[in-house]
């Protein structure tokens, strides 16, 4: 929308008027100076990933990444501010420096990594694109969707995968494209489209928001791989490392059995050298990131380890009840894997 173009305009202004010579200061110093991390999140309120809870506070799996970074930097997970963004606005907001981290269920792709001046720091959720349709249509497979009208959000990998998949399967479809996820949700709910497509995790979340969730079914096909993760601006390696290792700390903590509840106890009592290195009682890993030695302790105290954050937000402890699947640890049959702290 033109009246919502201000984010793009801000980038334009920054690119046109900013003096070419002035290189941006280190993000860590800027964040410390202003006293909080500015984190870009999903504006549509994707329950389980990024949505305001009953108390009006942002919560969710993507939000935990923002809080983990704040905890690593300040030792205080509340020192974070959120900027709600649509799919169209997200990368521009990061490029223009409006946000420090983007944690908005965004797919890591090569073109985004190489052409947008941003860099993905990891994968917090391995996802794939799926379809949802009304049960009353009697559709059991996405291949039955020939000729269907399909609601989709613009500016997403979803929009591209959709066209490719229907082409590859020799099927026809009518795209109904919206800029905002809420608009696409509402159009699907009102019956404008026969089916809705986005990442499978999003389908589970959006289904719960529909007027009658039980009337809709998520179809079995997963037509793409969508590694979702946080991203930062290129050119500031230290900041990228902090965001990267905040997530790795969560994954390593789960693997080592460090939890939100026992982290203090483990810090003082554990004899395991791996745990000692992670929690900062051995070596100076925190210092090498430009942080305090107990940076990982702060992360785990704030949001728990990866498994705890997953179960609380999107897993069995949540209304979404998503199975770990690919997001199980590598040692338990999944592909979540973090390099060692060494």
């Amino acid at each position: 929308m033109v009246y919502r173009k201000w984010k793009t305009a801000a980038l334009g202004a920054a690119m046109i008027l900013g003096t070419a010579a002035a290189s941006s200061a280190a993000t860590l110093d800027e964040v410390k100076a202003k006293g909080f991390v500015q984190c870009g999140v999903n504006a549509a309120g994707l329950q389980g990933f990024a949505a305001p809870n009953d108390k009006g506070e942002w919560s969710g799996f993507d939000i935990d990444i923002c809080r983990a970074v704040a905890a690593a930097v300040f030792g205080d997970a509340t020192k974070v501010k959120f900027t709600p963004l649509t799919a169209k606005e997200r990368f521009t907001a990061l490029q223009s420096g409006e946000i420090d981290v983007l944690s908005r269920n965004s797919t890591w792709t090569m073109s985004r990594d190489t052409q947008l001046g941003i860099v993905f720091t990891g994968v917090n959720y391995y996802d794939g694109q799926g379809f949802m349709a009304k049960k009353s249509l009697g559709v059991s497979s996405a291949k039955d969707l020939n000729g269907a009208s399909i609601c989709v959000q613009s500016g997403t990998t979803t929009e591209l995968n959709l066209a490719d998949w229907f082409r590859a399967n020799n099927l026809q479809f009518n795209p109904v494209v919206f800029e905002k996820q809420e608009e696409a949700d509402a159009a699907y709910d009102s019956g404008r489209c026969d089916a809705y497509t986005t990442d499978a995790s999003g389908l589970y979340s959006i289904r719960l928001k529909l007027a009658n969730p039980d009337e809709h079914v998520v179809l079995p096909e997963i037509i793409s791989k969508e590694p979702l993760g946080p991203s930062v601006r290129q050119g500031d390696d230290q900041w990228a490392l902090i965001v990267k290792w905040a997530l790795f700390a969560m994954v390593n903590a789960e693997e080592l059995g460090v939890t939100q509840a026992n982290v203090e106890e483990q810090k003082t009592g554990s004899a395991n050298p791996e745990v000692k290195r992670l929690l900062g009682t051995d070596g100076d890993f925190g210092k090498s990131l430009g942080l305090t030695p107990d940076w990982a302790v702060n992360v785990i105290k704030a949001v728990g380890n990866y498994g705890e954050s997953f179960e609380r937000n999107v897993g069995q402890g949540s209304p979404l009840k998503i199975a770990r699947g690919l997001n199980e640890l590598w040692s338990k049959g999944g592909i979540q894997y973090a390099p060692p702290v060494r």
Binding site: K5, T8, A9, L11, G12, M15, I16, A87, K88, F91, T92, Q95, S111, R112, Q115, L116, S154, G155, T156, E159, L160, V177, E179
Partner: peptide, 14 residues
């Protein structure tokens, strides 16, 4: 909308 997001050429597209 779509082209801007897919290519990331915000300044040129606008």
């Amino acid at each position: 909308g779509s082209t801007l997001n897919i290519t990331g050429r915000a300044v040129e597209v606008i």
